[in-house]
Structures are given as C-alpha cells and as structure tokens.
C-alpha cells in the first residue's frame, strides 16, 4: 500500500509553460454556448493563449469559491464573469476585483451609463434581464392573470404560484428585493399574505421551472424573455411572461478582473471582447438576456421579450448593508414569526 501511495504522488503530471487565462463563471454560461464562441474568438485573437472556463455551480457558488480561494491564498481565476448586481457589495467587501482600466476597453463606449452599476470601477456589465412572473396560458384562466403584485394575493391563486428561495437563488433574491422596493416597510405584510398562495419555494430556478412545465402550478417566478424563448425554440406562445403594473426587477450581470491576476493585459482584452458587437449579439439567444452594447441588434422573435416600462432596482450598496436583516426577517415570516 505504501508503494501505491508513492506511485500516486510520482504519477503527478506537472504541466507548465503555456499561457492561459482562467475565467470563472456559472454553469449555464458554458452550457448555453456563449462561452464556446468567446473561447474560439479569443484564442484566434491571441495565438498560443488558452482560455479556460471553470464553471461548476451557479453564480453564487462560483463567487463563494473565488472568495474562499482568495482568503485562503490559493491560486485562482484571472477573470470572474457572472456577478449579479446585488452581489456587488459582497464582492467589494471581500476585495475580489481590481479596478479595470477603461482605456484598454474601447467597446465600453457603446454601453449606456445607466447599466454601469458599479460606481467604484471594478465590475462591468455584460448583459441584463428582468425577473418577473410567467404563466401557463393553458392552465390559468384569462381573468386570473395577475396585473399587479397585489393580484398575486387573490384567494383563487392559493397554492398556484412557485417562487425560488432568496437565500439560494438569484431570481428568488430579486423577487424579495422587488417587493421591498415596491412596498417599502410594508413588505413583510405582503409576504405574509402571499405565503398561502405559494405552492413551493424551491432551492433553485431549475426545479421551479421544471415543476411549472410539469403542470404543478400555473404561475412561476422566472425571466421576462421566457415567451421569446419558447417562441424561438419551440414556436409556442403557451408560456407567457408578464410585467406587474409595468414593473419587473432588473438584473444586470457583471464581470471583473480578479485582484491577484498576472495576466492584466489578457484580462482587459477579454472584457473588451465580451462587450464587442459580435459577442453581444449572441446574448439574446444564448443567455436569454438583453445585450448591454447599445448597437447590438435583437433577433427576430425578441419582440415577445418584455422590457418593463418601470424597471425596478435597488441600490446594490443598500442591499449590501441591509441584506442580512431582510433575509432574517423573511426567514421569520416563513416559520410564522
């Protein structure tokens, strides 16, 4: 057995030499495909450089891993892509990123200022979307389709809504923040009345949407591009996204250069590439999010993707300050406190 142990250690393949840019992201960014296009493009631009995507888990899991690695002084990524805007305070507090140099990112000029959610200059947006509700037009009678947040409280909708947990999923957190932005101090009351109508508060979006597709409930918390998705992918308008009183919660996703990278030049080139027209025009049909590059054209079928009249958002810094308090309050509501 001792020999076995020695063998294992001797068998270590020590590979070194080639230059490499390591990017952490969440799994769907890779599985949907923009990652592959970016890799091809990037490696064509920089021969001899390998772009390596590491994507095991959702955005929050990957950020936690990055923070832990930095705290423990372990080698880690050069770039992180996929930071939800509300996570910005957490990332800044743990000093994950270094400021980018706008001079080295020419494509930044095409990004509207209102989408640049990080005033400190560490994180850049690459897409944005809207968290809202989607209903199944074959299961939900027309008159029950909610028009505003208050309509979700109707007794006819008892046990007919699926949302996700704000502690473990990003749309779930967005919805909690939406109600806080909308109702202010009164949000716990709203939730108290909403709870009986919730069939399930699932861990992640996948379970929630899968239940919804299986017909377990006619209304689910999801994204405003869902109608466009089912139209473009399946030619179906059965699942329809709605805004509530013209509102939906805005999510902007960002990327940044990790604090201790040695590949500063390549990292900036990467950010610039992601903001290029070519990559940005992939966002609608791969990420099912809107591009941040104002010149990017939307594909046919995207007329069904909703952009709310009144996008809702909260100042990330306020979120950073109050999040623990809000989640604590929300938890207590759940157990009837």
């Amino acid at each position: 057995m001792r020999t076995l142990w020695v063998l294992v250690l001797v068998a270590l393949a020590v590979v070194a030499g080639a230059r490499e840019l390591v990017v952490y992201t969440y799994d769907s960014f890779v599985s949907w495909g923009p990652a592959l296009a970016i890799k091809e493009r990037f490696e064509a631009l920089f021969p001899g450089v390998t772009l390596r995507w590491v994507a095991v888990g959702d955005s929050s899991e990957m950020l936690s891993r990055l923070i832990a690695e930095l705290q423990l002084g372990l080698p880690t990524a050069d770039v992180f892509l996929g930071l939800a805007d509300v996570e910005l305070p957490r990332a800044l507090a743990h000093n994950v990123f270094q400021p980018y140099d706008p001079q080295r990112i020419p494509n930044l000029a095409d990004v509207p200022a209102e989408l640049i959610f990080d005033p400190t200059g560490h994180v850049l947006p690459y897409d944005h979307g809207y968290v809202t509700f989607v209903y199944d037009s074959e299961l939900l009678p027309e008159e029950l389709v909610p028009q505003g947040l208050e309509d979700l409280l109707r007794p006819e909708l008892r046990g007919k809504i699926i949302v996700t947990d704000p502690r473990t999923s990003s749309p779930g957190l967005s919805f909690l923040l939406w109600t806080i932005a909308h109702f202010g101090e009164g949000w716990p009351d709203y939730w108290r009345k909403l709870l009986p109508n919730l069939l399930a508060i699932t861990k992640g979006w996948s379970e929630a949407y899968d239940m919804f597709l299986a017909g377990e409930a006619p209304i689910v918390l999801s994204y405003s591009t869902d109608t466009a998705y089912s139209y473009i992918e399946h030619g179906s308008l059965r699942y329809r996204a709605i805004t509530l009183g013209g509102e939906a919660f805005r999510q902007v996703e960002g990327m940044g250069i990790v604090r201790n990278t040695k590949e500063l030049e390549l990292a900036h080139a990467f950010l610039n590439l992601v903001l290029s027209l070519e990559i940005q025009e992939l966002m609608p049909t791969t990420q099912w999010m809107f591009p941040v590059n104002a010149r990017a054209k939307l594909p046919p079928g995207y007329e069904y993707a909703l952009i709310p009249e009144k996008p809702v958002s909260l100042d990330p810094m306020l979120v950073g300050e109050k999040l623990e308090e809000w989640l604590n309050q929300w938890q207590k509501l759940l157990i009837g406190g």
């Binding site: 947990d165 502690r167 473990t168 919730l198 069939l199 399930a200 508060i201 699932t202 861990k203 992640g204 379970e207 938890q331 759940l334 157990i335």
Partner: peptide, 9 residues
Amino acid sequence: LSLGGARYA
C-alpha cells in the same frame, strides 16, 4: 429545499 420548499429548511 427542493421538495418541501423554503418552509422546510
């Protein structure tokens, strides 16, 4: 979390 939902954490 997946089956019972957040109420059953």
